[in-house]
Design a binder for these strands. Structure first.
Lengths: 337, 337
DNA sequence: TTGTAAGCGTTATCAA
DNA sequence: TTGATAACGCTTACAA
């Protein structure tokens, strides 16, 4: 079922059929109607391959995601997808699981314009590679972004968010604060680690590197990290986790060790995932504007797609500290002399 | 950068370059080496659009997913992706969020063979539509599947799993068992509801429809459903939730109402998500072989892709009841006469 | 073994 | 307003 069949059935040339199908003005009203009729009876739909090859534009947006098991990123994607869809584009999700070779292979799909553009929800690419890609194709970085790379991006102020979160723990009397970070050297992690250090510093608390452990965002890794921290001579009285999922494992580890959260020890999460609110205890966490981030990312991409202009605009959206149960003021044990 | 450029640089025809690039045997060893060399220096990679148009095969597998916020499905996808990748295919994820029009639009990508095949992780399509698609394209249904549709599928024995789970609750002394089901009329849900009814039946417990509530898999919806159930004159002493995420909200609702899990009331989940093990209490749940399901789905698809044969094989993989903390024998209150 | 040329399904240019 | 035709990048008969 190709345009030829429609041409044959309608009695017009393929050129006219093409014009009719694409709603171009220079085609007789009645003829268009007839052609569309024919297309319908034949259940004809244009071959996107032929179209894309000719137009060098498929209308498909590739969304590359390092880690798909992340509610926050998934929701940001969904938001972007919706916007893109409204403008006639289709968004597909390409999880790469931190596999650099696979990501590069996928990126080849850009060359023939099989993909019209990319939103990176994290990438294994380096700054140079990203910038090279950016001069040739519409791309935007979303949530994660390479520091200083000349591309459009949307994210949150990770450093500040971490700073505020850890400061909140300090205000609750905690000075021995463990951090469960991620083992992936991505931008959000680096910035959150910086925010953690700066918060300690500005409160006059010295940074202790053995208080920082790395997980892989899975709850289990939060559990492991916490168990390690608990073997320290002086374990933390509060934990700052870089995701709610790891905070979940953290709390479980504490519970298994007979430590009450938040009675004895406090735990701060990150993401405000749908779980955070419903766990026992509910998790005090840093809320991220996932819908706004996805929306903004799609807008930045659409600008490039439609106007072919590159502003390389960088947007940072506001987070919020969501107060719940898992953080409480430290109860000091006053020693009786 | 097209095949022409490589031809020009190497001094050979585009036909020879094409043959060299595709590792065909009928090309001189030295010439091939030289051509590959040229391709490398030019950083040439074939245009998939041109290739696909000509071959009617893009090597891209579309994975349609109703609901992306589902750890289980996401992991099944990852497993399928890995297998497919080993065989030279690329798998992309297309979340459709239960939007039937959008799903149909995506399916048009099959027509021009922009997509080589589809794995459905759930679909809004009806049986008829699915079967029509199946005669023309390689497709397999994964996890969710339309009952009786003549297509290949992999799933688990949802009815049996639910039966065993609910029977386990009954064995623990529970007779008033609430069910938190899903509001999406998908196959897994229907079968689990059947399993629930049959388990009650075979224990001589009568089915009470008001004990069944529907959520949307989000923890919050499990919370709401439970709060409703708690307003009943005689609330359940055990809850069977169709996902761990809803079990999470369920437990929270119970906790908020001063009810101890599992001390007073038991909760059974479904999925064995990474959270289930790390929550407090950890969730007794039904474990699904996500990796095996994804692998099998990809194998069934590869068969169709490579051999062009359609067996429409249906495979049911084994589940397991994962015993943890959230279910305990019912403590009966003996009334003192 | 290599090259020429047709064709995959479109759309844009140009002429009618 | 409509139609013939070239072109997008690639592969594969067929010819050399």
């Amino acid at each position: 079922m190709t345009i030829k069949d429609v041409a044959k059935l309608s009695g017009y040339s393929i050129a006219t059929v093409s014009r009719a199908m694409n709603n171009q003005r220079n085609v007789d009203k009645n003829i268009r109607a007839k052609i569309l009729e024919c297309a319908k009876t034949l259940d004809y739909s244009p071959n996107i391959l032929g179209k894309s090859l000719r137009n060098k534009d498929s209308g498909i947006i590739m969304c590359i995601m390092l880690n798909i098991n992340n509610n926050f990123l998934a929701d940001a994607f969904l938001s972007a997808q919706k916007q893109l869809n409204n403008e006639g584009y289709q968004a597909i999700l390409c999880p790469v699981s931190y596999d650099s070779d696979y990501e590069k292979k996928l990126l080849h799909l850009l060359e023939g314009r099989l993909m019209a553009g990319v939103i990176f929800f994290g990438t294994t690419l380096g700054r140079r590679e990203l910038e090279e890609l950016n001069v040739r194709f519409p791309i935007v970085q979303c949530s994660e972004y390479i520091e200083g790379a000349e591309t459009a991006f949307v994210s949150i102020e990770n450093r500040l968010a971490a700073f505020e979160g850890v400061t909140y723990l300090i205000q609750n009397g905690h000075t021995r604060i463990g951090m469960i970070s991620s083992k992936f050297g991505i931008s959000s992690t680096k910035k959150r680690e910086t925010g953690y250090r700066e918060a300690l510093e500005s409160a006059g608390i010295s940074f202790v590197s053995e208080l920082v452990r790395k997980g892989n965002y899975e709850p289990e890794s939060g559990y492991q990290a916490t168990m390690e921290l608990l073997t320290l001579p002086e374990p933390p009285t509060a934990y700052f986790c870089v995701s709610d999922s790891m905070a979940c494992g953290c709390i479980r580890a504490l519970c298994n060790s007979g430590i009450n959260v938040p009675g004895d020890v406090s735990v701060l999460g990150f993401d405000n995932s749908p779980f955070a609110r419903n766990m026992v205890p509910s998790i005090t966490t840093i809320g991220l504007p996932y819908a706004a981030i996805g929306k903004k990312a799609s807008e930045l991409l659409l600008e490039q797609l439609k106007n072919c202009k590159k502003d390389n605009e960088g947007v940072l959206l506001p987070h919020e500290l969501v107060l719940r149960e898992s953080v409480k003021p430290l109860v000091r044990c006053h020693r009786v002399p």
